[in-house]
C-alpha cells in the first residue's frame, strides 16, 4: 500500500557502520539546562517538522522504504560538522533531501549547483530548516542516538513517544 513517498529515502553513502555499547536516554551529567532544552527542541524537529524519523526510524536505527535504505544514525562515523552539512545539503545522488532552502541556488553545498547536478540533485525536504534548527537536530542525534547501540531501548522509546501509546510495548 502506498502512494509513493519518493522523497524521504535513504541517506547518505557516508554513513558508515560502527557499533557502540547501548545505554538509556539518561542525560549525560555534563548536559546543562540549555543543552537539554536544545536537545528537546532537536527531538521535536526530528520527529515532526523535518520528519527524519519517516526514513531513519524514530530511534535513528535506519530503515528501508521507498527509495532504498536510510542508513543508521546511531552508528554514523560522521563528525558533527559533517552531519550538519548532510542535513543542510542532502546527499548527491541519493534520497537524502536538503533542508537549506538555498542549498543549490549557489555553490554553498559541495561547491555545485542544481544546474550542474541535474537529476542527481538531492530531493527537496518537505520543510526547510534554519541553521538553528539544523544545529538542534544534529545535537539531538549526537546526544540521544549516536553511540548508544544499534537500536533504541524501551526507555528511549518512552522518551520519544511518551507513555500514553502502545508504541513502546514491543520494546519491553
Amino acid at each position: 500500500m502506498k502512494k509513493l513517498y519518493g522523497f524521504m529515502f535513504a541517506a547518505a553513502a557516508a554513513f558508515a557502520l560502527t557499533v557502540s555499547s547501548a545505554s538509556a536516554q539518561t542525560p549525560a551529567p555534563t548536559e546543562s539546562a540549555a543543552d537539554l532544552r536544545e536537545i528537546e527542541y532537536g527531538k521535536d524537529i526530528f520527529k515532526t517538522k523535518a520528519n527524519c524519523q519517516f526514513c531513519h526510524k524514530w530511534d535513528g536505527s535506519g530503515d528501508q522504504g521507498y527509495g532504498g535504505n536510510a542508513l543508521p544514525l546511531r552508528t554514523t562515523e560522521l563528525t558533527l560538522e559533517q552531519f550538519v552539512e548532510t542535513v543542510k545539503c542532502g546527499r548527491i545522488g541519493t534520497g537524502m533531501p536538503y533542508h537549506d532552502r538555498f542549498a543549490y541556488n549557489d555553490k554553498r553545498c559541495y561547491d555545485t549547483t542544481r544546474e550542474e547536478l541535474g537529476n542527481d540533485t538531492p530531493p527537496i525536504a518537505n520543510e526547510y530548516l534554519q541553521p538553528r534548527e539544523i544545529a538542534a537536530v544534529a545535537k539531538y542525534v549526537f546526544a540521544r542516538q549516536k553511540g548508544r547501540g544499534v537500536k533504541g531501548s524501551y526507555e528511549d522509546c518512552l522518551d520519544f513517544w511518551g507513555k500514553e501509546s502502545k508504541q513502546c510495548e514491543q520494546f519491553k
Binding site: 509513493l4 519518493g6 528501508q64 522504504g65 527509495g67 537529476n119 514491543q170
Partner: peptide
C-alpha cells in the same frame, strides 16, 4: 526482521 519493521527490499526514486 520483527513485526512492525518495514519489509520492502529496496525502493524507487522518481525520474523527472
Amino acid at each position: 526482521v520483527k513485526p512492525r519493521d518495514r519489509f520492502t527490499g529496496g525502493g524507487g526514486v522518481n525520474q523527472g
